[in-house]
């Protein structure tokens, strides 16, 4: 249940105001637009990474704006893509001579609106490229990777693209690295309970007691398969089976790991699950690199979690390690 709101229609606006009031040391409001930008944006000579999507997923997306990460985040209403007009305004506020990279989860509403904004910016001579995050293996089979939706894998792709942009890489290079990070990132999730939109009295969907939904989406879309509830160690295997079967072709043995909470699952439960995830990774001959057990891309008050692996190499690892500072993620 989402409990804290005034008029549900004002939810986005009020959350932006509160976020900027709290984290003014990282971001400021984009004037006249539904979004926030890094204090040092626009950064001359550096590619501007613009991320965004619907609200309801904090820390995605505004929590990842700051030095070494995104230059700006465009914020839509709860679970609705931002309009093309808002994407355009935010882009104009942070675009530099080095160009702009759009990075967001692959949902039709986001694609439509970001594409329309990209076209408008191109017509004005701003070089904009797009990399869509497509990490959720449950949303389309192998061979149709481009059709997959983006979930918690957003985080690794944003981090790597943001670091490349901060390093001063060209737009071609930032785009290439973001694409590479996405191509090597896979996620799979499990849900135990639905989420409720602000102002609504019932959740979008419910999970029967004693059951769980596999392949959930971050918008509370029902999962693609239902199963009886299992012990954590079996869930660890279930998640890893799905990811390892889908490992990218050029996978090495070092993997960045994110066990991501969806909003209403406790950290301590997730550590219990992570213990078995970690052991299984080692048993598979993989080296977990700086694992993260945290809420990085949520879905309001949804119960559940997802596991993300990003197969690293000598090019991606330093970018993941590069310093950054934002409201939700600081690396130093």
């Amino acid at each position: 249940m989402t409990k804290l709101y005034n008029d549900p229609a004002d939810f986005r606006e009020e959350l932006i105001e509160g976020f900027v009031a709290a984290y003014g040391r990282f971001v400021r409001r984009v004037p006249g637009a539904s979004g926030v930008m890094a204090l040092d944006a626009p950064r001359p000579g550096k590619v501007a990474l613009v991320i965004g999507g619907g609200s309801g997923h904090y820390p995605a997306f505004c929590g990842y704006v700051g030095p070494g990460l995104a230059a700006a985040a465009v914020m839509g209403n709860v679970f609705a893509a931002p309009s093309a007009e808002q994407v355009y305004r935010v882009t104009k506020a942070v675009a530099s001579d080095a160009g702009v990279l759009y990075c967001y989860g692959n949902y039709s509403g986001d694609v439509l609106n970001f594409d329309m904004a990209e076209l408008r910016c191109q017509e004005e001579g701003i070089d904009v490229r797009t990399v869509r995050v497509t990490d959720d293996v449950a949303s389309a089979p192998r061979g149709q990777e481009d059709e997959r939706r983006g979930i918690a894998g957003d985080f690794f792709v944003f981090k790597i693209a943001g670091a490349a942009a901060a390093r001063g890489d060209s737009l071609d290079e930032v785009e290439r690295l973001a694409r590479k990070a996405n191509a090597r990132t896979r996620s799979f999730g499990v849900a135990f309970g639905g989420c409720t939109l602000p102002g609504q009295s019932a959740p979008l969907f419910t999970v029967e007691p004693g059951r769980m939904e596999l392949g959930l989406g971050v918008h509370g879309e029902p999962g693609v398969q239902s199963s009886h509830m299992r012990p954590a160690r079996e869930i660890a295997d279930l998640l890893l089976d799905a990811l390892l079967a889908d490992a990218p072709p050029d996978a090495g043995s070092t993997v960045a790991v994110l066990l991501n909470g969806l909003g209403a699952t406790q950290y301590e439960e997730m550590f219990v699950l992570y213990k078995d995830v970690h052991r299984r990774l080692l048993a598979e001959g993989l080296s977990p690199y700086k694992p993260i057990v945290n809420e990085m891309v949520t879905s309001l008050d949804m119960a559940g979690c997802s596991l993300t692996l990003c197969w690293l190499d000598e090019e991606l690892t330093p970018l993941l390690d590069a310093p950054c500072a934002s409201a939700a993620y600081i690396n130093c």
């Binding site: 609705a80 893509a81 309009s83 509403g109 439509l112």
Partner: peptide, 15 residues
């Protein structure tokens, strides 16, 4: 139409 798209967002707003 422009106001509708901007206020709605999402795919349906744009369309």
């Amino acid at each position: 139409g422009a106001a509708f798209s901007d206020a709605s967002g999402g795919a349906s707003g744009a369309l």
